[in-house]
Design a protein around this nucleic acid. Structure first.
Lengths: 288, 288
DNA sequence: AAAAAGCCTTCCGCTATGCGGAAGTCGGGC
DNA sequence: GCCCGACTTCCGCATAGCGGAAGGCTTTTT
C-alpha cells in the first residue's frame, strides 16, 4: 500500500487521513505538549492546515489544549485505547493473576504484546519500594532487547523472525544480543524451554524472566515478564510462579492446552514471598 | 466552531478529518470488533470511502485487522493514550500511593479525571477476591452519578456546574440524584468538607467515598475514589486514609497546599487493614 | 443447482473539499 | 517605539478523494 514514511524532501504527497494521523504521531514520551507551530514544523504541514486540523481534533476530544496554548493527547484517545482487544481486554483478564504474581515475587511485572518489531507493555506493575524501572504502561521496546519480546519472537513465524533479525538491531548494553546467529540460538532455546532469561540486555543490573501466554487455538498472544535486580534471586526459582501465572491467564483466555483438570482457580499466593534486595535501575536512552 | 454531532439525515457534510474520527468513534465497549460494512453503516460513509480510510488507519496502526476480516482499535492508539497528561502521567505518579491505599483498605480504588460532563477512570484497582466492579480503566461515567464525579464537579466553575445540572441527568438507581437542587446541596457539602460520600447511586449495594487531588496552583485535577460493599464499613472510617493518599499525590504533583513540613514520603501502610465483606456488585446498563 | 443476498475490493471521472499563501491580530522583548 | 514570533482568519484554485458502479467471492435460500 501507500508508503507512510515520507522523508518530506519533495512536496508532501499526503492523503488527508495521513495528515490527521501525522499530527497524532508527533506526540511521544519526550513531547507530551506541543504548540501549533511546533506541530506544524514537525509534521511539515502548513500553519493553516495544522491549525484547522488541530481544532477538529480538539473538538472531537483527540487532543486537549492547555492554558498555555499547547496541545496534548486527549482523554478520548486514552478511552479508545482501552478498547484494543490486545490491550484493555487482555489486561482486564490478566490483572488479578499479575497482582498475585507480584505479591508472591516482589518483582516488577510486565504484560507485553507484539506490535511490529516491538513489544508494547499493556500492563506494568512496579514493585513496592523499588527504584523506578524503565517500563511504563504503553511503553514500546524492541523485541530483541526485551525478555518478553524474545518470548514473543520465538513464538512467531519463521518468516517474521528472519525479518526482525535482518533489521537493524540496536545495542543497549554490552550484553544486548544483536548478532543474528546468537539470537537464533537464543530463540531456539526459548522455544524449547518456554522460558526466556535475560541479564542486563536492555538496562544494567537487571535480570528478567518471561514466559508465553496462549489464547484460543493455543496461539501465543502475549508474554508475562518479571524483572528483578541482578543477583537478588536465582532466575530458575522464579520459573514455577511465572509458569503458573501464565497458565492461569492462558486458561482464562481459553487456551486449549491450559484448560484441563481442575476448573479455573487463582493460584495460591505463597510461592516465593522472598524479599528482594534493592538495586539502582538505570534509565536507558529511549525506545525505538 | 463546527458542530460535530450530525444526526445525518441530510447528506453528510463532513470534513475529511471528521470522517477519519467518525470511524474511530464507532468502537465502544459493546463493539470491540467491527466489519467494513458495519463500520460503513454506522458512520454513514460509503463503502468505498470507508474501505480506503480503514486501510490508511490500519497501515498507521490505529486499527488492526483480525483473521475474520473485522477491525479493532490498534495498539498504537493504546500507546498514544498513555501520553495524555491527565492519563498516563498522572497515573504513573499516583499508582504507588493508590496501591498503598488498596492494601490498607481492601476496597476498589479509582483515579478519575474530568472530561466533558463525565469522568474517565485513568486507573482502576479492583480489590482482591471481590466480585467484578463496574469500572474499567478508561471507563466513562456521568459526573452526577459517581462519587469521584461529584468531587470534580464541586470543584469546577459555577458556570460549568450549572451547565451540567441543566443537562439531562440519567437515573441509574432509585438513589441517583437527578434533581438539580438536591445536587446543588450535595455539591455545597462536598466543597465544604472536601469529601464526597455516596450510597448506591450508580449501582446497588455499593458505598463510595471520594476526595479531590490538587496539582500546581492548587487546582483540583483529579479525584481518588473508593468503593466497598454497602454496610461493610463506616464511610467516615475510610476518610483518613483517603485524605492522606490524596495529600501524598497532590504533593507529588506539586500542589502548594500539600507541600509542607516533612519532605515527600509514602504514607505508612497500616491505617485500616480491616477486612471487607464480599458483596454482589451489579453491572449497570452502560455509560452515556 | 441456480439464484439471491452479503461482503469486500477495485476502478474512474467530477466536483466539492480542504489546501496554502497572504494578510490581520495579539503579545513580548529589546 | 519597533520588530519578531506565534496564532488566527480569509479566500480562490487545483486536486484529492468521494461515491457510483461493476467484479469477485462466499454463504444462504428456494
Amino acid at each position: 500500500m501507500t508508503v507512510l514514511a515520507d522523508t518530506s524532501l519533495e512536496p508532501h504527497r499526503l492523503t488527508s487521513a495521513q495528515r490527521v494521523l501525522s499530527i497524532l504521531g508527533v506526540f511521544d514520551t519526550e513531547n507530551l505538549a506541543l504548540s501549533l507551530s511546533e506541530i506544524s514544523r514537525r509534521t511539515g504541514l502548513t500553519l493553516s492546515t495544522t491549525h484547522r486540523l488541530l481544532n477538529e481534533l480538539r473538538c472531537w476530544g483527540a487532543l486537549s489544549r492547555h492554558s498555555d496554548g499547547k496541545y496534548s493527547i486527549g482523554l478520548r484517545i486514552l478511552e479508545l485505547g482501552t478498547l484494543a482487544p490486545q490491550g484493555g481486554q487482555l489486561r482486564e483478564i490478566a490483572l488479578p493473576f499479575l497482582h498475585d504474581l507480584q505479591h508472591a515475587t516482589h518483582g516488577n511485572i510486565h504484560l507485553a504484546v507484539p506490535e511490529g518489531h516491538d513489544v508494547i507493555y499493556v500492563e506494568s506493575l512496579r514493585a513496592r519500594d523499588t527504584v523506578p524501572v524503565p517500563s511504563r504502561l504503553g511503553g514500546r521496546w524492541p523485541m530483541h532487547a526485551t525478555c518478553t519480546g524474545l518470548v514473543l519472537l520465538a513464538n512467531s513465524s519463521q518468516e517474521f523472525q528472519e525479518e526482525v533479525l535482518s533489521s537493524k538491531l540496536r545495542q543497549y548494553t554490552v550484553n544486548t544480543l544483536t548478532d543474528p546467529d546468537a539470537l537464533r540460538h537464543s530463540l531456539a532455546e526459548v522455544r524449547k524451554s518456554s522460558v526466556a532469561v535475560m541479564e542486563s540486555q536492555l538496562t544494567y543490573d537487571v535480570m528478567a524472566v518471561a514466559v508465553p501466554i496462549r489464547g484460543p487455538r493455543d496461539r501465543v498472544v502475549a508474554a508475562v515478564g518479571i524483572t528483578v535486580p541482578s543477583g537478588s534471586i536465582a532466575p530458575h526459582s522464579l520459573v514455577p510462579a511465572m509458569a503458573a501465572t501464565a497458565r492461569s491467564i492462558s486458561r482464562a483466555l481459553g487456551a486449549p492446552s491450559a484448560v484441563a483438570e481442575p476448573p479455573a482457580q487463582r493460584p495460591p499466593a505463597h510461592w516465593q514471598a522472598r524479599e528482594v534486595k534493592r538495586a539502582s535501575f538505570t534509565r536507558p536512552s529511549g525506545p525505538r
